[in-house]
């Protein structure tokens, strides 16, 4: 509904003009000696865009690596957050100890948790980016 509004302003001039493509049966093309270029053009990015079984394999590999990364990061988060209550509850030093007049449990939950979350986020950000650039390399190389 709303997507059409801005497309008017799309400066088509900035794009390179579309390349001329000979439209003919592959056999005709082959006999004209153009068989090779046509074959080279069907790259993996074509497969990906057209959702062929091969493209699907590539997509699955990207999704799997990103999902594995996400699960690892969130898994560590859940272990830390889920484990903290029991750790604090079962260790008397943490439960009733104080540091500069403030209970240790408060310092852990109020302050120390945040750096852990930030470190996990950093790891997630960096690996997600490298997963994607690996994927782009893989597609463009093939």
């Amino acid at each position: 509904m709303t997507g059409e509004v801005d497309r008017r302003g799309d400066p088509g001039a900035s794009k390179p003009p579309p390349r001329r493509v000979t439209v003919a049966h592959p056999r005709t093309l082959a006999s004209l000696g153009q068989g090779q270029p046509v074959a080279r053009q069907t790259s993996v990015s074509d497969d990906l865009g057209r959702q062929t079984p091969l493209g699907d394999v590539y997509l699955r590999s990207l999704m799997r690596s990103q999902l594995r990364l996400g699960l690892a990061v969130v898994g560590v988060l859940v272990l830390v957050l889920g484990g903290l209550p029991y750790l604090v509850f079962s260790t008397p030093a943490l439960r009733d100890g104080t540091l500069a007049g403030i209970p240790v449990a408060w310092l852990i939950l109020g302050v120390a948790v945040h750096p852990v979350i930030l470190i996990l986020a950093r790891v997630c950000l960096r690996h997600a980016r490298s997963n994607e650039s690996d994927f782009v390399d893989l597609i463009e190389r093939s």
Binding site: S45, G49, R50, D56, L59, V136, E140
Partner: peptide, 19 residues
């Protein structure tokens, strides 16, 4: 589904042919 998932996960720097 497959087309949508490509769109969701493929980085924007890849220019994919249209279908």
């Amino acid at each position: 589904t497959a087309r949508t998932l490509v769109r969701l996960h493929a980085p924007e720097s890849l220019v994919l042919p249209r279908r």
